[in-house]
Design a protein around this nucleic acid. Structure first.
Lengths: 203, 203
DNA sequence: TCCAACGAATACGTCTCCGTATCGGATACG
DNA sequence: CGTATCCGATACGGAGACGTATTCGTTGGA
């Protein structure tokens, strides 16, 4: 008695998640209705309730899917950094090079942070993910210092926090002023500069 | 025929705005009901509809009120910086010193950015405010360089953008992990370091 | 003191969305 | 080929929020 999804289920699930990303990006989480998500996916609410129990659950599932993707990307960047002459570059590239239509995701993920800020349980989940992300970044930074043969003058975890703060803050500005500040521009300009700052007075 | 508020109106308005900040922070913009805001303020919806035409308008009014406050704060920081020996300090302090229970506002303002990202009209309004904020910051930075007698090696407007990005990104992290990362901690640690980085190779 | 204008309360109809309970069709399997 | 299970569709009842139309009380001026 295989309890797992048989055939249609995974497809339905994926299409619901895709539609959810769309609608959440357009209308925000609370503004989105389950009905519109189902419509957009080509189903009725029946499909939704046989796959999820609530909008919250769908939201979490969406986060999980994307967070796996992000970690894979970053792990690959780590591998590349290991073999590269300039590990800092791998970090900068990861931060700045992105699919333009990821804008949808930026909207949703920022809102997910707000959602987490109001839900301790979700916050823990998000915090764990971000810790994993930071871990990759820290390892890249370690490679960087190893490469120039010096001891880090500051806590690398905080540096990683700073890197993601710059990234998230930059994204927020990009969302509001897409013309003045393209996504990734801030990182492109300042992450290298910052890496230099952190390594300054060492070499 | 004085059309302006006579007596009760300003009081009512202020209490509605206060309550709105509360409820928006708790339930998010779309999650908040007009009714709950009115209840919390001690009124019925009648009061609301005689002061606003929609929830959106209330949201904008809330933003305007706080944005005046922010600009005043920052202008004062600018004045202090003008007379101080270390202008960078004024900037860092402005960024890090905040009322702890401003957490409510951080939640709402971040959501306001998301709202603006979806509404070009609102985005323009927000962009203008942020431009004014940046203007103050740029002037502080100019003082900084004047003080050490050097020409800025990078575009100061971008540096100001970076400063607010660090601030906003840091706040976002603080909201999710209030224990690991108190509000303002990131700025406290890194803004000085960054100021040093920007001025490095000059003096 | 009276009255006009204003501001908040009340009452009503509507609409959207939600969740459940039930049904029908497809699919996997013997 | 038949059947049991799974999955999505349909149908229903209900709750909550919205916006308006109207009423009531208060305030400030004549």
């Amino acid at each position: 008695m295989p309890k797992g999804p048989t055939k249609r289920r995974p497809e339905t699930l994926a299409r619901l998640l895709d539609a959810a990303l769309d609608v959440f990006a357009e209308r925000s989480f609370y503004g989105a209705s389950i009905e519109e998500i189902c419509d957009r996916a080509g189903y009725t609410r029946g499909a939704f309730y046989s796959n999820f129990t609530s909008k919250e659950e769908l939201f979490l599932a969406l986060f999980d899917r994307h967070s796996k993707q992000t970690l894979d990307d970053l792990t690959e960047a780590l591998v590349r950094a290991t073999n590269a002459t300039d590990p800092g570059k791998a970090l900068t590239e990861w931060a700045s090079v992105r699919d333009p239509d990821e804008r949808r995701w930026y909207l949703v993920s920022t809102e997910f942070s707000l959602y987490a800020a109001r839900n301790p349980e979700t916050a823990a989940r998000l915090a764990e993910h971000e810790a994993q992300v930071r871990d990759r970044i820290v390892r890249i930074l370690e490679l960087l210092f190893e490469h120039i043969g010096a001891k880090p003058p500051v806590d690398l975890v905080m540096v990683a926090r700073l890197a993601t703060a710059i990234r998230e803050g930059g994204i927020l500005q990009s969302l509001v002023e897409p013309d003045e500040l393209p996504v990734g521009e801030l990182e492109r300009q300042f992450l290298p500069l910052f890496v230099r700052a952190v390594t300054a007075g060492i070499r």
